[in-house]
Structure formats: structure tokens, C-alpha cells
Computed example of a mutant assay.
Amino acid sequence: MKKILSTLAFPLVLILFSCFIFLNKGASDSSSDRDDSQKFDNLVWADEFNGSGALDEEKWFHQTQLPPWGSWFGGLVNHYTNRVENTFQKDGFLHLVAKKETFTDQGETKEYTAARLNSKFSFTYGRVEVRAKLPSGVGTWPAIWMLNTNIDEDGAFWDNQGYDTTKWPYCGEIDIMEHWGDDQDYVSSALHNGSSYGDGVVNVGGQKIKNASDDFHIYSMVWDKDKIVFSVDGVEHLTYAPEVKDENTWPYDSDYYFLMNIAILPEIDPDFTESAMVVDYIRVYQ
């Protein structure tokens, strides 16, 4: 009888030991999942726009220099300025304002003004959140986006610092949010690089949201060494994770900086007078 019990006990011990290992593995996996979900939770840079008047010059640079041919890429019909009329802080918000007005700069006269900001902060990998409401009007084109600090673009902040080594699109571009006034409430994200640019952009996705120009929404990006994921208010609409990561598909392994701007397209509504992108905050977690 003892021999039978002993014979039965050994398999029972093995079963119990296997269950212990499985349960602990499950706990370990759950812990790993928790770690993944909590990744990029350390706030490393932000602007809450709690000042008054002009922006914090330690954080932002106004990019105003026109390309050599006198107009911005895409045939834009606006000047970008560094005036408080186009960019200011008030009541805890950034106001990035596009205006209809005759303005002459750098020998060129244009009928609209706006602002194009470059951040003086750059980083590799992290989670970005921007809470904003968007301008309205056919012909308006607001964007919250990123470029590699190595872009060769005269007049850009990081180019002025001597980082300019690589032409667009091979430097890489990350569009967190774009909105076109002729498609109100549809917001888009995209990746531009050597394999996807110009009329051949394939890495793009978006979603329709409610009241993009009247209500605040949170535009988010999570960027790690494997993929870049875009969402609005927690709802994802694009994941970029190319199987082959080379210089054409994945220039996303070095420092990028932020841009925020409103472009004015040639098809601007003739009745347009003024509209703003209002930003509550921009935050970066790593």
C-alpha cells in the first residue's frame, strides 16, 4: 500500500510543480504586460502655456525664413511671422492664429499670415500627448508634426545649430495630426521617408472626430524602436511597423523635434478672416 501511495505521489508532485511554474509564468507575463502598458510614463518635457503674451523662447523658435523660390512647399499663400498677433499665450493656452492681412517680408507680399513653431527640445522614442482644438475654414491646414534634427532646411532651428546633413524626405517626418478645412473633422497621421513621400505617401491613416474646431481633443503618438502608433482620445487609427527597417523605411531611430503651424492653401475661402489652433498642452513621456 505504501509503495502504491509512493508511486502515485510522484506524478502528483510533478503536476503540482508544473502548475506552480505555469502560474508563476503567468504572473511574470502579466507583470511584463503591466510594464509594457506603463512604458513611457515619465514626463521629460512639456509646455502647459501658462504664461502671458509671447511664447517661452527657451522652448520655441519661430521659423519664418522663406525657401529660395519665395513660397513655402505646397504653394502656400501665407507668411509665417514671429509676431504676437500670430502666436501668443493667454489663460493657459497657446493661440496659433492664421489671419487674412497684407504682409510684406523678405521682399515678398502675401495676403495671409500665420506661425510655424520649432521646438528647441528633441528626443528619440517616447509618448506624446497634445491637447488642442483646431482652426476651421476651407483652405486652412493645421498640423502638429515632427522632423529629424538632421534635416537640411535653411532657416529651421536645428539647421541653424549645424545639424543639417540630410534632405527631406530621407531625414524622416512624423505627422501626429493634420486637418484640412475642406474635410472638416477628419484628422490624419502619416509617415514620410524614402519609401513614402510626395504623391506616393502610403503610410497614412486617420479618423473622423466630433467638433475638431470647437472642442479639445488629445492627439497622441507612441514611438518605440519597433513601431509608431497614432490615436485621438485613445482611439488608434494608424500603426507603422515595417518588417524591413532600413534607411528608407525607418529613419526613426534618432532625435526628432516638434513643429506646430497653420498653413494657408491657395483654395482658401475668400471670406476667411481669422482662425486659431488653440493648444492646452504638449507633453513628452519616456
Rank of each mutant, 00 (worst) to 15 (best):
P142L: 13
V130P: 02
T140H: 01
Y125V: 12
Q161Y: 03
K210N: 04
D214G: 09
K133F: 01
A190K: 12
V204Q: 06
D105Q: 15
Y112L: 10
D154A: 15
Q106H: 03
Y186W: 05
N193H: 11
L96Q: 08
I144C: 07
R131G: 06
N211Q: 02
G198H: 04
D199N: 13
V187F: 09
T124Y: 01
E111A: 15
T140I: 08
D164T: 12
F123M: 12
T102D: 07
I151N: 11
K99C: 10
N86D: 15
G162C: 11
Q106C: 05
H95F: 04
V84E: 15
A98L: 03
W158C: 15
T81W: 10
D182T: 05
G181L: 04
N148Y: 03
F93L: 14
G107K: 02
K167V: 14
F121T: 09
G200C: 07
Y112T: 08
T124P: 02
I151G: 12
Q89F: 02
G200M: 05
E85C: 07
G194L: 04
K167L: 12
K90C: 04
I209K: 06
Q161K: 11
F93K: 13
D224S: 10
V130K: 07
S196T: 12
M177E: 05
V201W: 02
D91C: 08
H192F: 10
R116D: 09
H179S: 15
M221T: 05
D164I: 10
W180H: 14
K100W: 00
N82M: 06
H217K: 02
T81P: 04
S119I: 03
V187P: 09
D224Q: 07
F121K: 12
P135D: 04
S196N: 08
H217P: 03
M177H: 09
V202A: 09
R131T: 11
G92K: 00
N203V: 09
N150T: 13
L94Q: 06
N203S: 11
S213P: 00
N150E: 10
E101D: 01
S195L: 10
Y80N: 08
K100L: 01
D91A: 13
W141L: 11
H192C: 15
F216W: 00
N86L: 06
D164F: 05
N150P: 03
Y163F: 15
I176N: 14
H192S: 14
H95W: 01
Q161W: 03
L94E: 02
L94W: 02
R127F: 06
F216V: 05
T87L: 13
I218M: 05
A132E: 09
D159N: 14
D159F: 11
L96K: 01
L147S: 12
Y112M: 06
R127N: 06
A132C: 06
K100D: 00
D183Y: 07
T166P: 03
A114F: 01
Q161H: 05
L134E: 00
S195G: 07
L147T: 12
W168S: 13
K99S: 04
N148E: 04
A212Q: 01
W145E: 14
S189H: 10
T113A: 07
R131V: 06
D159C: 11
S188I: 14
E153Y: 09
